[in-house]
Amino acid sequence: MLQLKHYHFNAFSLSCRAQVVEFPHLDAGQMYPALQAEALQPQISHAEPDTVDPHEFVVTLKLDHAPADDSVFPYSFMIEAEGLFTIDHDGDLDERRRLVAVNGASILYGAMREQLLTLSARHRYGPVLLPCLDFRGLAKRESARVDTND
């Protein structure tokens, strides 16, 4: 079982894009400016104590989104959150690392999503709701991005 002991934001910035001069057009039934999951490139890293069999890990998740010049998405943002997790799992250490990275990133992403929604609600173009992401696939594709301190 994974437990979040603490999390905080290391960085959080949200800017209205100057080149977007009109309010974003929202299609019927759409409540937020559209942001596709493919537009986000989350970066996950984690650290662990220098012990033989660690059960405590720090996971860092960073989202940095700067839309292309021809994009109609009205915001650019950068968010970095860090969480301290414990895991009650006595299996293989690599499996424990994978579980913490995937599930820890998912938990931090939920906190980022809510905070961005709250902050952007008071910005010029209205609220932004981050799309759902599947971190299981990201961990497999981006294994080179996951830093471990062995």
Rank of each mutant, 00 (worst) to 15 (best):
residue 3 Q to Y: 10
residue 5 K to Y: 07
residue 5 K to H: 13
residue 6 H to Y: 15
residue 18 A to R: 11
residue 20 V to T: 04
residue 23 F to E: 13
residue 23 F to Q: 11
residue 25 H to C: 00
residue 27 D to S: 13
residue 27 D to A: 15
residue 33 P to V: 10
residue 35 L to H: 07
residue 36 Q to M: 06
residue 36 Q to R: 13
residue 39 A to F: 06
residue 41 Q to L: 08
residue 43 Q to R: 13
residue 44 I to F: 03
residue 46 H to F: 14
residue 48 E to D: 01
residue 53 D to C: 00
residue 54 P to G: 01
residue 55 H to K: 02
residue 56 E to H: 10
residue 60 T to E: 14
residue 62 K to S: 14
residue 64 D to W: 04
residue 66 A to R: 15
residue 70 D to T: 07
residue 72 V to I: 10
residue 72 V to G: 02
residue 73 F to D: 03
residue 76 S to W: 01
residue 77 F to D: 03
residue 84 L to V: 14
residue 86 T to R: 08
residue 87 I to W: 02
residue 88 D to L: 02
residue 90 D to C: 04
residue 91 G to M: 08
residue 91 G to I: 00
residue 92 D to R: 02
residue 93 L to V: 01
residue 93 L to K: 01
residue 94 D to P: 01
residue 94 D to R: 03
residue 96 R to M: 00
residue 97 R to S: 04
residue 97 R to N: 02
residue 100 V to L: 04
residue 101 A to Y: 02
residue 103 N to C: 04
residue 105 A to L: 08
residue 108 L to Q: 07
residue 110 G to V: 05
residue 111 A to F: 15
residue 111 A to G: 00
residue 112 M to F: 07
residue 116 L to W: 06
residue 116 L to E: 06
residue 117 L to P: 02
residue 117 L to Q: 04
residue 119 L to R: 10
residue 122 R to C: 00
residue 123 H to Q: 12
residue 125 Y to M: 05
residue 125 Y to K: 00
residue 127 P to S: 15
residue 128 V to A: 06
residue 129 L to S: 11
residue 130 L to D: 07
residue 130 L to T: 09
residue 132 C to N: 11
residue 135 F to G: 08
residue 135 F to P: 12
residue 140 K to T: 14
residue 140 K to D: 13
residue 142 E to K: 13
residue 144 A to Q: 08
